[in-house]
Design a protein around this nucleic acid. Structure first.
Lengths: 192, 192
DNA sequence: TGCTAAACGGAACATTGTTCCGTATAAAAC
DNA sequence: GTTTTATACGGAACAATGTTCCGTTTAGCA
């Protein structure tokens, strides 16, 4: 019973990598059509692998979801800097809120899952806050500094507000969420 | 095979009535502690009846939920008239929004279920809209007429906005939802 | 007291997340 | 090229939960 030498790790097996890619791609596709509540079996089948394999790569449902959305979360957070560079402070903030609402809205079931308190989603939620919070804080601070927005707004309140609105699933009438977010943005304005 | 004479319906059986009451009471208690996602078996057990009995009275989970909350929905809608009588138009609207947000927030899982698109919740949602919409419309119209609120706000947008916020489940910090709702109310104000 | 429609209870079924373990295999060692 | 072995695979099996079905019980009526 000898101890495994620490260095010189065995390379990742090719089939494992292939299956992982297939799973991520399948999950992405399934989540778009069926929402994140889709059965894991559906993802495994679409990827052409067994359920056991899926669970080997993603010990929990939430891990799969996290893996799929991590990249998109990053993209959304990164958009903040671009908007800040191209627009006046208040408009940048308002536009990013819209962008973020759309992101959440198109991830059917993501936000409710995230906010469900389920400990399984802790990782994803942590990543979310780690990336999204700085983004909105930067925009908000800039808008406040410019005198366009009242100074007593909590960045977390904003994240949560827009997340909630985006995830409400009310897509019955086009533009509804956008209108509400705009209303909210108006509420942020500094009153003379 | 004779047709049952239409008149003179057999009275509701006493045990049936008793069980129905027990179920409603048990469900109410369980929903408070475990949210509306609680297993139906838990409700049946607490009521001291079999699952079959529960399903006889409430063919679907959603029917049970609907029955439990119908009364509370009514109470919340009725509060609108009281607030309108006791406060200026804008304050009445803002207060009712807060009242409504609290109502939704204390019904863990209600709003997500309502907005899930699940057809099982159609009845409850219909009742919801039938009672709540007139309430908010009345308050909104009054505030607009008084010149306190911009005239381009859709009542449905408001219902949905507050529902979404209240149901987000973010109870991590006290007053968060209240602050956000207040922010939203500010966005409604008429700009000179 | 006896009859019958209504109600009851819970076993059984379907779906879905998750675990387990015997089998297969890619990469390394020789 | 063969052997070895850690790794990965697949899917049967388990647990939780919504829902259905049907044999049994019973309240209300005659």
């Amino acid at each position: 019973m000898d101890v495994k030498p620490a260095g010189k790790e065995r390379r990742v097996r090719a089939d494992a990598q292939r299956n992982l890619d297939a799973l991520l791609q399948a999950a992405k596709a399934v989540f778009v059509t069926s929402g994140v509540d889709a059965p894991v079996r559906e993802v495994a089948e679409k990827a052409g692998v067994g359920i056991g394999t899926l669970y080997r790569h993603f010990p929990q449902r939430a891990d799969l979801i996290a893996a799929v959305f991590r990249r998109e979360i990053d993209a959304c957070a990164d958009a903040a800097a671009v908007l800040a560079a191209e627009h006046p402070p208040f408009e940048a903030l308002a536009l990013w809120m819209q962008r973020y609402a759309v992101f959440v809205a198109t991830k059917k079931g993501l936000a409710p899952a995230l906010h469900s308190g389920d400990t399984a989603f802790c990782t994803l939620r942590a990543h979310f806050e780690e990336r999204v919070r700085p983004a909105i804080k930067m925009l908000l601070d800039a808008a406040v500094a410019a005198g366009a927005v009242r100074p007593d707004v909590d960045p977390d309140d904003l994240i949560i507000a827009v997340s909630s609105l985006g995830s409400s699933g009310y897509t019955d009438k086009p533009g509804r969420v956008a209108r509400i977010v705009a209303l909210l943005a108006d509420g942020l304005r500094a009153h003379p």
